[in-house]
């Protein structure tokens, strides 16, 4: 088990009902963690439409995780 901090933005924040949480998981990477959270919270976006960030920087899928990492799932962006 590892302990991770997850931050949520935009549509994921609304679907989760909170902006961040600390959780324990056996997921080895961010892709597996997202599937775990999607099943639990009903996120509508498939992982293929997201990017991952680990510890404040973009991380290529599947984005391996270690204990203490900070994870953000990035929905399709829409600035401008």
């Amino acid at each position: 088990m590892k302990t991770l901090r997850v931050q949520y933005f935009a549509i994921l924040r609304e679907q989760r009902g909170q902006a961040e949480e600390t959780l324990s998981t056996t997921a080895g990477d961010a892709a597996a963690l997202y599937e775990e959270l999607r099943a639990k919270h009903g996120f509508t976006l498939p992982v293929a439409r997201l990017r991952a960030a680990v510890n404040g920087e973009f991380a290529a899928w599947p984005a391996p995780l270690k204990d203490g990492d900070e994870v953000v799932f990035i929905p399709p962006v829409a600035g401008g």
Binding site: F9, I11, P75, P76, A78
Partner: peptide, 28 residues
């Protein structure tokens, strides 16, 4: 402007006249 729109993690939620809302580019 083209790169900012495509790459920077910023999201836009539109509020419509009929009261509905939508996160742009996030429809499924």
């Amino acid at each position: 402007i083209d790169e900012v729109k495509a790459r920077v993690p910023i999201w836009k939620k539109e509020h419509y006249a009929d009261g509905a809302t939508e996160w742009i580019n996030c429809a499924t």
